[in-house]
Simulated scan of single mutants.
Amino acid sequence: MGRINFDLQELQAFVAVADRSSFKQAAEDLFLSQPALSRRIEKLEDTLGVKLFERTTRRVQLTNIGRGFLANVRTALDELEGAILGVSDLAAHRTGIVTLACVPSAVHYFLPAVLKNFTERFPKIRVRIHDESAQDVLNLILAGEADFGINFAGAEDPEIDFKPIYKESYVLAMRHDHPLARRKKLSWKETANERYIAVSKSSGNRSLIDSALAGVEKHPAIFYEVNHVSGILALVEAGMGVAAVPRLSLPPHMQATLVGVPLVNPPIHRTLGLICKRGRIMPPAAQTLFDMLDQSIKNDKKSLP
């Protein structure tokens, strides 16, 4: 045979008849008339120069050659489908936008190196980052307004897939010249007389601390309340007091002036995770960034504080 002279529709017709052992049922599956289906099979057999089916008034069955050909056609169609999906994925990676929601500390520690690598590979894809409170991050994921997120909230939500990536402890943030700055650890009781700066009671961080300290005899006195950890750290840096914050909340650029001493009795921890809406299939570009973040965090855990 000098050249292949049949099309995809003829191969699909062949597989349909082989699966159904019936021209009538195969024609219905393909939304064709029986004569049109028969013409496709006849054309394929003429091109190949062989009979693929034995046809009687009662049944249709594959010839020996037809059975061997069917296995090869199935493989070819599967590979063709995979190739088409691969092209679609590639096209989706060339342009578009990925939307990521995360708590602010994740921006400092997890995103820069991964985003740089991602942009080098896919320079025309835009990445939109919502650095918000834990509840806002969760709401963005649930509403489908972000492809995925990094958050410490959502593990108990039945609509969220939560993949733990890092367990961090709470520390007492203070200036380097504070009298307690050289301590290796501090109990909450030892800090009870400090002037505390805290986030508002609507914050997930505040709820976690309040719950953990419910059984502690003497609670720290809170002198200032702000809405975001960034505001807390600005006041700590100005010498206005101390603050209990997650360790990763101390950004690298502030570590020249601030120190974080682990808090114990009781110790408080939170677990950060990669989150996405359960059952939602992410676009290829978003899935790629998700996988790159996951792998990067696994590789770099030892370098995290």
Rank of each mutant, 00 (worst) to 15 (best):
153 A>C: 08
112 P>Q: 11
164 P>D: 02
244 A>G: 09
28 E>M: 14
254 M>A: 05
261 V>L: 06
194 E>G: 02
21 S>Q: 11
128 R>N: 13
219 H>P: 08
171 V>I: 09
239 G>D: 07
64 N>I: 13
38 S>P: 06
250 L>S: 01
138 L>R: 00
86 G>N: 07
184 K>H: 11
243 A>M: 08
250 L>E: 00
111 L>A: 07
189 K>N: 15
3 R>S: 13
88 S>K: 14
276 C>N: 15
261 V>F: 08
224 Y>K: 06
138 L>T: 03
143 A>R: 13
141 I>A: 03
56 T>M: 02
225 E>H: 09
266 P>D: 00
286 A>N: 00
228 H>C: 07
238 A>F: 08
180 L>T: 00
238 A>L: 09
144 G>F: 10
241 G>F: 05
86 G>H: 04
145 E>V: 11
290 F>M: 07
276 C>V: 14
23 F>G: 07
291 D>K: 11
41 I>P: 04
270 R>Q: 14
74 R>T: 01
90 L>V: 03
289 L>D: 01
95 T>H: 13
125 I>M: 00
78 D>L: 13
159 E>N: 14
248 L>D: 04
186 L>D: 02
218 K>H: 15
9 Q>E: 12
278 R>L: 10
112 P>E: 10
22 S>M: 05
304 L>D: 11
78 D>F: 11
79 E>P: 05
67 R>S: 14
99 T>V: 15
295 Q>C: 07
168 E>Q: 09
278 R>K: 15
92 A>F: 00
19 D>R: 14
192 A>G: 05
169 S>T: 09
131 D>R: 07
66 G>A: 09
3 R>Q: 12
305 P>G: 06
23 F>S: 02
81 E>A: 15
194 E>S: 01
140 L>P: 03
12 Q>T: 05
85 L>A: 15
161 D>P: 07
18 A>V: 00
196 Y>G: 05
192 A>H: 10
13 A>E: 05
78 D>E: 15
299 N>M: 13
156 E>G: 10
153 A>W: 03
237 E>C: 05
89 D>G: 06
31 F>Y: 15
46 D>F: 14
155 A>I: 04
102 C>R: 10
111 L>C: 03
8 L>Q: 11
242 V>N: 06
183 R>W: 06
247 R>G: 07
33 S>T: 15
124 K>W: 10
201 K>C: 14
175 R>G: 08
6 F>I: 01
122 F>C: 00
227 N>R: 14
53 F>T: 11
87 V>Y: 10
26 A>M: 08
